[in-house]
């Protein structure tokens, strides 16, 4: 469907997208995940033709898109802040792409009604866009992008501006909807929760390059680098020398899963793999802080040596601040980073 082949975009001396190659298959939902400034939005704009490509090729269905202007690419793009046309009502917004393609009035009306139904706003055609809530604008923007049946739908921070509860609900709805319609989707977001819930495949970007690509589970279970691990919120990363099923670190011996890469590496211990016990056994740590996180408590530990550690434990097991505990590690929550 979509193939990026060494795509590079420069802004002056700065390289925003650096030789990115990426394939999106038919009906696949790919989510580009990265911090702000990682070049993910620029990537979308390059695919849409809104941003000229300095090197590399963008191919859609095998056809090189160089020289094809934006309006002939047949894509859908949902902007971060929706960009609904303020002077048109909901129906006028959704019908816009159809009008541009010369669809008859009757077909337009039918398609608009169908799409508003699909996004859960039946009969909203005559409403003014200014009177819509954030979530409703979101739905109208989605309907507008979907109406001309684009071969590829692109979403720029699709749920960025909505509040948390709505976001979590919508992301499920979206995935369900795309699955039903068989839409091919390329989305970008900085929110890992959103990416993991939406995507078949997650592409993590850093400084214009792809840092890791894989299914949400793969990326979550086996972050490829310290950057990906930290971006996913895992801070227990330490230098290590791996030999066999143990890694030698400043925190002492850490057990690693069988078949891990050997030698000088970095090791990630997920908070769930940090066990707290009696100070006599394991790594001696002082409890610096505890943060209530609802179903668990995050405990920040200061070991006698090495970087701080974060542990996760049940509320009733959580030690008080200032307490001294002994830490052991469980191998199934440890990842050797390559």
């Amino acid at each position: 469907m979509l193939r990026l082949d060494g795509v590079t975009v420069r802004f002056g001396a700065r390289v925003a997208v650096d030789a990115v190659s990426l394939d999106v298959a038919d009906h696949e939902i790919v989510c580009v995940l990265g911090p702000s400034g990682s070049g993910k939005s620029t990537l979308l704009r390059a695919v849409a033709g809104l941003q000229p490509v300095d090197a590399g090729r963008v191919l859609l269905d095998g056809a090189d898109q160089a020289g094809v202007p934006v309006h002939r690419r047949g894509l859908g793009l949902m902007f971060q802040d929706h960009q609904l046309f303020p002077q048109r009502d909901v129906g006028g917004n959704v019908a816009f792409g159809l009008r541009m393609r010369g669809v008859s009035r009757k077909e337009q009306a039918a398609r608009v009604a169908e799409l508003l139904d699909l996004v859960g706003l039946p009969g909203a055609e005559r409403r003014a866009v200014a009177a819509l809530s954030g979530g409703e604008q979101q739905r109208v923007a989605l309907a507008r992008a979907l109406a001309p049946s684009p071969r590829l739908l692109m979403l720029d921070e699709p749920l960025g501006q909505l509040d948390r509860g709505l976001r979590e609900r919508l992301v499920v709805e979206l995935r369900h909807l795309f699955g039903r319609l068989g839409t091919t989707v390329l989305a970008v977001t900085h929110d890992q929760g959103e990416a993991f819930a939406l995507a078949d495949r997650v592409v993590v970007m850093r400084d214009g390059r792809i840092a890791q690509s894989g299914t949400p589970l793969e990326v979550w279970r086996r972050p490829a680098s310290e950057f990906v691990a930290r971006f996913l919120g895992f801070d227990n990363v330490v230098e290590a020398t791996v030999s066999g099923e143990a890694a030698d670190t400043v925190w002492g011996k850490v057990p690693v899963p069988a078949g891990s890469p050997q030698g000088g590496r970095q090791v990630l211990v997920r908070p769930a793999g940090v066990r707290l016990g009696d100070p006599a056994d394991g790594l001696r740590c002082t409890v610096e802080a505890r943060t209530f996180r609802g179903h668990h408590v995050a405990v920040r530990l200061r070991p006698d040596a090495g970087p701080p550690l974060e542990a996760e434990c049940a509320l009733r097991d959580a030690p008080d601040e200032g307490a001294v505990v002994g830490v052991t590690f469980t191998s199934d929550e440890v990842v050797v980073l390559s």
């Binding site: 809104l50 902007f79 046309f85 816009f96 992008a145 001309p148």
Partner: peptide, 8 residues
């Protein structure tokens, strides 16, 4: 840009 992407 939104209009252009929609085919204008």
């Amino acid at each position: 840009e939104a209009a252009a992407v929609l085919g204008a």
